[in-house]
């Protein structure tokens, strides 16, 4: 069963069409990424999905309940983590959580214990009673996510949760998201960081100019655009001898050599690599180093849109 189904979402601001026919679905326990540069339409799309922004057209259903700006029932199934830190600086983490817990209608008797659980998950148990204005940026980010988790949503929407975060906090946030995915929470994750999408997401939609350009697993997306793996070999001895020896391997699309190294373009490098090394040994060429570069979403995005993700 799909946790989220959205179809034909459209939103225009005056003459600017920010989202133009966006539609996708997320299955139970799936982590789905919306990958695109700033201004691609990611935040506008998820604002409509979360029932925050009125759409001009299209439908959103979460766990079978239609979502609009006026519905309340379906919104309780959604956890929303906005891109900007959305907490009250003059309240403590515990007070922030209690306020939003009450808004989401969590029972009074279980609210405190649930707050303790969330503080534990986001690693703020020992600072829960401090005002959040005293927190570091990373701690605020974690609380920002914690508020979205509080009511144990069926679908958790995270809008670029690592923007402006130091590497250590970023890693902690990504680990938290991975944990949530493992627990079976359906996640909708927007980012313009290719590495995050590759690390976290089961499926990814490439979005640009308000439209989804492509969608699928990382492998599907890579295959979609015909990208190949690159194997870089450090060579001790004659590189040309290795090039000649590998010439008979059909799976190799192209091979080039420079002094001390050989670059091979191939489909499915991981399965072919043992054979390549075997051939090198038979040819009497020593291998000093191996690097496999798989095609990434950055190159997919470039191929689909003609521009880099960070443009």
């Amino acid at each position: 069963m799909n946790v989220l189904e959205c179809e034909g979402l459209v939103k225009a601001f005056d003459d600017l069409v920010a989202v133009d026919g966006v539609g996708f679905h997320i299955a139970e326990g799936e982590t789905y990424g919306l990958l695109g540069p700033n201004g691609a339409g990611k935040t506008t799309s998820i604002s409509m999905i979360a029932g925050i922004l009125e759409s001009d057209a299209g439908t959103v259903t979460v766990a079978g309940t239609e979502i609009t700006t006026r519905t309340t029932e379906g919104k309780a199934k959604i956890g929303y983590v906005p891109q900007d830190i959305a907490i009250y600086p003059d309240l403590s983490a515990r007070e922030n959580l209690r306020f939003f817990g009450k808004l989401y209608g969590l029972p009074k008797q279980s609210l405190d214990s649930r707050i303790d659980e969330v503080l534990e998950v986001i690693g703020l148990s020992d600072r829960g009673d401090d005002r959040t204005e005293e927190y570091s940026g990373g701690m605020k980010r974690r609380l920002n996510i914690g508020i979205g988790l509080l009511h144990e949503p069926t679908l958790l929407i995270l809008d670029e949760p690592t923007v402006g975060v130091d590497p250590q906090s970023r890693n902690a946030i990504l680990e938290s998201v991975e944990q949530l995915g493992r627990r079976g929470t359906a996640l909708l994750y927007t980012t313009h960081y290719m590495e995050e999408a590759e690390r976290l997401c089961d499926r990814v939609a490439i979005i640009d100019g308000g439209k989804i350009r492509a969608e699928g697993t990382r492998r599907e997306l890579v295959e979609l655009v015909g990208q190949r793996d690159t194997v870089n070999l450090g060579v001790v001895g004659s590189a040309q001898r290795l090039v000649d020896a590998l010439g008979a391997v059909e799976e190799i699309e192209s091979i080039t050599s420079t002094e001390g190294s050989v670059e091979i373009l191939v489909e499915g490098a991981s399965s072919l690599l043992p054979r390549i090394l075997d051939i090198a040994q038979q040819a009497g060429v020593g291998i000093s180093g191996v690097e496999v570069v798989e095609p990434n979403l950055e190159s997919v995005f470039l191929h689909l849109t003609g521009k880099a993700l960070r443009d």
Partner: peptide, 15 residues
Amino acid sequence: FYGTLPRLLGAPINR
């Protein structure tokens, strides 16, 4: 200003 308005709008409450 604090960014909490979207969070309120996303909560299951009447606007």
